[in-house]
Design a protein around this nucleic acid. Structure first.
Lengths: 250, 250
DNA sequence: CCACCATGGATACGTCGTACACTCCAGATA
DNA sequence: TATCTGGAGTGTACGACGTATCCATGGTGG
């Protein structure tokens, strides 16, 4: 959508709409004292809907219904559904505890990773919706916190970013895998790992019967921590942090 | 869609429709000698469409148009759009070179990571579409290859999986960030890093003017490899591999 | 040679995002 | 106090989407 430049005649001064970003608009001093709708209220309702029924349930109409308002009402505050989702994501980022004290960079990065994971597990839709490096104020607070900690260790800017990207990359990808499996479980009604394996058994046994996956099959028989997601995440995270420490000598 | 469990009795022989997976159906011997439509052709057309115009352009109607066929025709081969996307993802996984010789586990895992990244960069939609651990035959070939290599080093099954998940988690999250930025570039018509920063400047300068992000602002001024995605990915990957080597003593 | 059934076509339904024009009321102005 | 004005929320409508359902057809096994 090429933003539809007004056809030249447009008076110069009053055409400030298209260039002002969502966040800039929101930060302007309360523009109206009495409104039933508010970016806050919109974000809360949309997040509640997504938490309860998934991102696909977040429809402009259902959102409007939840807010007790006409279907098009929210469009006063967001330019479209994409911005609504930006708003939702930034809203949940806003709940992250970012100012915990930390002994050193490792503590700080580990805590950041753990809290990011917890956030995404609490709002499973956020993994799919969050575009890494989206420029929301609360999302930007994450690299800000990390950079502030890392800068004290004499790392140059590029290395700092590399460390940050490595950790958040691992977290994002890791949690995406977790959430995918969790979604599958929920929508098929499987409550634990055994039920999941039972549900997947037909598909799996057909795949294994092709004989193409002997090593994977052996894993299926021998592994004992298949359902320990916390251990898997934590172990991987320790590897990543160990690697950073070793690689950059910090 | 709760997959509609057959009511326990599940007659053994003739009720194979609902429980048979996409992949199992596809593997049956060529059921009809003369068909204009084929899972192969469907996957190719859908992938070409997604490569050219993004995943949102892949519509059952547009796909049918590209295949020269009625809108509903593809439903003979896929049960719905979800399965179409599964098919697309597994199709691009099928192009991965997985049998390259490798000197050791580190070489093998590094090459796996590099090829996965290249695949996702060549088909940007695949990052969003790929559910880690989806059970397509070509997707399963990835852990199979990794496990086969790692098993030679005396790692137990759980550790093997932890290593695999750590590496692929990093790759997935990392590439997701890259692709997000790349998509933004393409749809806004920015060709290089400078143009991108220029396009983002208004939003960015407003954010910085809030004073909430001093460390991030310093990064913006001092970093010199902001556009070197290969270096960023490679550095992070080396950290991850270093960490694995140190953590498990291999 | 024929009957069958898989293949692909045609039509239709409900829902989505959202464009557009409207009503209405709170505050500023006089 | 009477009037004006602009922004908040409404109502209606359109085109595109996924897909359920029924139908015509023609190659193939008996």
């Amino acid at each position: 959508m090429p933003a539809q430049q007004a056809p030249a005649g447009d008076t110069p001064a009053d055409d400030d709409k298209p260039q002002v970003s969502l966040w800039e608009r929101l930060a302007r001093p309360a523009p109206a004292p009495r409104t039933t709708l508010t970016p806050q209220r919109i974000a809360e309702a949309a997040v509640a809907l997504a938490d309860a029924e998934g991102l696909d349930a977040v429809t402009m109409r259902r959102l409007a219904g939840a807010l007790g308002v006409a279907p098009m009402a929210a469009y006063r505050y967001v330019s479209g559904k994409d911005e609504l989702i930006e708003l939702m994501v930034d809203f949940v980022y806003g709940r992250l505890p970012l100012d915990e004290p930390a002994d050193d960079w490792r503590d700080a990065m580990r805590s950041l990773a753990v809290h990011l994971r917890a956030m995404h597990l609490a709002h499973p839709w956020s993994v799919r919706a969050a575009t890494p490096f989206a420029l929301g104020p609360n999302q930007l607070a994450v690299p800000e916190r990390a950079f502030a900690v890392l800068a004290e260790h004499g790392l140059d800017a590029d290395t700092t970013m590399a460390v940050f990207r490595t950790v958040t990359g691992y977290v994002h990808g890791s949690v995406a895998a977790e959430v995918t499996l969790e979604n599958l479980r929920r929508e098929r009604g499987w409550s634990d790992g055994d039920q999941t394996r039972a549900g997947l058994a037909p598909r799996m046994s057909w795949l294994m019967s092709t004989g193409r996956y002997p090593s994977y099959q052996r894993y299926l028989h021998e592994a004992t921590r298949k359902d320990d997601a916390d251990w898997q995440f934590g172990t991987g995270l320790d590897c990543v942090l160990d690697g950073i420490a070793a690689h950059f000598g910090i």
